[in-house]
């Protein structure tokens, strides 16, 4: 198995060498077709009761990965495996069955709830679609239980409310309850707290932590805030311009970052406890265009340690021990060649 999870538990949802290219709409009939190389070769595994944080800047492809895992996008290449079985392009019924197991929470609770429908409708619809409630009484009881689970109480009051009557934090709790209504084993949370006020963020994060523990959910936690990745997730995967650059146990990645991009990201994060001697690393350049991405390692134009080889090909994965790995020539060639066929190594 290529995935390195320090825990002994088997992953429930895995992605192997996922790739997504979006065609660019063009109006010149004879021009060469162009694509946005949104995600190149991402592999990850989600384990019940544990969280993996996907960290990167805007445009790094984190949301595209989540949307492929939720099967909202069809991957251009690569395999998604649920409980070890490949998930393939499928009919509606099979998709519904898949979504019964894998649910997503979106970033913006102001636009992910329908303003003309009540909380009862939002949750009841999911329960009915997934055949978890057949009568109205059953449905009400389940909705109340779900609202209790996300600490929206008294639940009897919230059930008839409309989104505009709720605060941002409460809306996000409704979105989480909606995802839970399907009874999923995997939760894909796309920046679940970044639109919320600072003082209520932690409440929602702690709710997700509790659900992860109590419901044994496997959580993919997408964030741009590396500090909350450390707080929430056991493992962290750093992405840059569609490529994975480094991953491992969150503490290892954040305290001993190896890849120059991870180092840049961490030195740029606000940190009042940073010793005065630690100067922020100078950054240069910007996130590249994904239509014509730099060859090789996409970070090389901004990398202070760039070598000629960085331009030529993307480095393979170098294991650093304890489940910590990086894609960087500074630490070796790596042995998991991403361009060739997926090689397995023990």
């Amino acid at each position: 198995m290529t995935m390195t999870t320090p825990s002994t538990a088997t992953p429930i949802l895995e992605a192997d060498h996922l790739r997504k290219h979006f065609p660019v709409r063009q109006f010149r009939p004879f021009a060469k077709p162009q694509v946005v190389h949104a995600v190149e070769d991402i592999s990850l595994a989600l384990v019940p009761g544990r969280a993996l944080a996907l960290v990167g800047e805007s445009g790094s492809g984190k949301t595209t990965v989540a949307r492929m895992l939720a099967r909202l996008y069809e991957p251009t290449a690569g395999v998604i495996r649920f409980r070890g079985r490949p998930v393939t392009a499928s009919r509606r019924a099979a998709l519904l069955e898949y979504r019964h197991h894998v649910q997503m929470v979106f970033q913006d609770p102001f636009s992910s709830l329908n303003p003309v429908h009540s909380v009862r409708y939002h949750l009841g619809r999911v329960l009915r679609l997934h055949g978890r409630a057949h009568t109205r009484d059953e449905e009400t009881a389940q909705i109340l239980a779900l609202l209790g689970k996300v600490s929206l109480t008294p639940a009897e009051q919230f059930i008839e409310k409309y989104p505009h009557q709720l605060s941002g934090g409460q809306r996000q709790r409704v979105s989480i309850a909606r995802a839970l209504a399907a009874g999923p084993e995997v939760l894909l949370a796309d920046e679940p707290v970044s639109m919320l006020d600072v003082s209520i963020r932690l409440g929602v994060l702690n709710l997700l932590l509790r659900l992860k523990r109590e419901e044994r959910l496997a959580v993919l936690f997408i964030t741009h805030d590396i500090a909350s990745a450390r707080y929430f997730a056991e493992e962290t995967l750093i992405m840059y311009a569609g490529q994975s650059v480094e991953s491992g146990p969150s503490d290892a990645v954040i305290q001993q970052p190896k890849h120059p991009y991870t180092q840049l990201l961490i030195s740029a994060a606000p940190d009042p406890d940073r010793p005065a001697t630690a100067k922020p690393l100078p950054a240069r350049g910007e996130i590249p265009s994904l239509v014509t991405p730099p060859t090789g390692c996409r970070f090389h134009p901004r990398c202070p340690h760039a070598m000629p080889v960085c331009r030529e090909r993307f480095p393979g994965r170098t294991e650093l021990g304890n489940g910590h790995w990086t894609h960087c020539f500074l630490y070796g060639e790596g042995n998991d060649a991403p361009e060739g066929p997926a090689t397995t190594h023990s």
Binding site: S167, G169, Q170, D197, V198, S199, I200, R201, L202, G203, N206, L209, D225, I226, A227, S228, R230, Y231, F232, D251, I254, Q255, I266, A269, D271, D273
Partner: peptide, 18 residues
């Protein structure tokens, strides 16, 4: 309410309510 990059990991409570 801000998770930290360094130091020991512990559960933070934040501010309840809104």
């Amino acid at each position: 309410s801000f998770p930290s990059l360094r130091g020991e990991q512990r559960l933070m409570t934040g501010i309840p309510g809104s």
